[in-house]
Design a binder for these strands. Structure first.
Lengths: 212, 212
DNA sequence: TGTACATCAGTGAACGCGCGTTCACTGATGTAC
DNA sequence: TGTACATCAGTGAACGCGCGTTCACTGATGTAC
């Protein structure tokens, strides 16, 4: 038995990490503050000290999620690459399934929390910003392109998580490239210039050239 | 107080209906057999009699969900209309949010249940069947078109449910038409023949003519 | 260097609750003769 | 029409459990002088 100091050091962080683990294993519904305390090696009353209550903890988790997502989306937006922004979305969702899952179950946390609202606004702005750079946006309303892209990657990420697409590909990001090529064609990548001079090849993912 | 007969009549149905209500109100995590029993006006032990346990009840709900969805998808498939199949998906998801929600949380029920597997297979077949009729399927693998379409409508339905698209439209099905037009263009509707001779109008939904 | 004090982090006992599940039971229904 | 019997549907008491939350507390840390 190792020596347990009275002060944990960074219990807040440890509890959030434990929450991620539990959600990955059993889903957000099965999460309890007592179990998190146990995993962090701390008495069961401790979590309330940091987060007030269960919704408080999940609200913190969601804020963190939107910050992570916002970072990646903003980077893609800075490069003006719509396709890459979509892939970043998929990468985030499948790389941080616990965060992603809770973010879209608003009754589990407090969606009006200022930190959540701010981080979400940044993500939205990045999405809309890159959408405007897409050539297809000349034909359709830019907002419509943003929504279509969002639906596409969100649906893919969600279905992947639920296990409905596992037979289609090994890697969700690769699948996302293929699917984006099917739906949007070459036009998805602003970098490639004018849309579709020649016939696209059968979906190998090679019809779209992402930034890197 | 009205007279309560000893035999309920159709308790199984009543419990499933109550489950839908509770899930609509508070999400699947908050569902308890005891509450369902209470709502159906029956003792708390009764649900176990019909469904064995909680997962059994949700499994029945999911099987029912896939049957409802399969019916609508199969109808669209019979008409060979891919766009309409997608709209049927959105219509189902937003019209039966409780079913839809549980269907895509496999750890809440028994995904291997025979009734579930059979109903799901029918839905899948309808989706793939209609996808093959899309003109764009000549350029890309038909499977890829099916997946892209599925991701699009699934993402839209999911985001709508989470409240993330409510500001974009009054009606999710109308929004789905607009989004499908943006992503797939005229090609989405097999009925319209060759894809896109003229420039599409700004997204009013009128660039795609659904069957009815 | 030492002392006093404020602040903070985590403890652990206690509370009341709603839950799933079990089980011997009883009331109602249907069928055979 | 009547009787006996099997089957089914729902009862209600009991069980043990894990939960969120509260709260007076104590150990540790940092700061002022």
């Amino acid at each position: 038995v190792t020596e347990r100091p009275y002060h944990h050091g960074n219990l807040r962080r440890a509890l959030l990490d434990a929450a991620v683990d539990v959600i990955d294993e059993k889903g957000p519904a099965a999460l309890s503050l007592r179990e998190l305390a146990g995993r962090a090696g701390v008495s069961h009353g401790a979590p309330a000290h940091h987060f007030g209550d269960k919704a408080g903890l999940l609200t913190a988790l969601v804020a963190e999620g939107y910050e992570l997502l916002g970072d990646e989306m903003a980077a893609a937006a800075a490069r003006g690459d719509f396709l890459e922004a979509g892939l970043a979305y998929v990468r985030f969702a499948t790389g941080h399934p616990a965060h992603f899952q809770v973010m879209f179950e608003p009754h589990l946390y407090r969606p009006d929390d200022p930190a959540v609202v701010a981080a979400r606004a940044r993500t939205d702005a990045a999405l809309r910003g890159t959408a405007a750079t897409v050539p297809a946006a000349r034909e359709h309303e830019a907002g419509s392109v943003a929504i279509a892209g969002w639906c596409l990657v969100h649906g893919l990420a969600t279905l992947w998580q639920a296990g409905n697409l596992r037979t289609m590909a090994d890697d969700p990001v690769e699948l996302a490239q293929r699917v984006a090529a099917t739906a949007f064609g070459r036009a998805a990548s602003a970098r490639d210039g004018a849309p579709a001079p020649g016939r696209g090849e059968p979906a190998t993912g090679s019809t779209v050239t992402p930034r890197r």
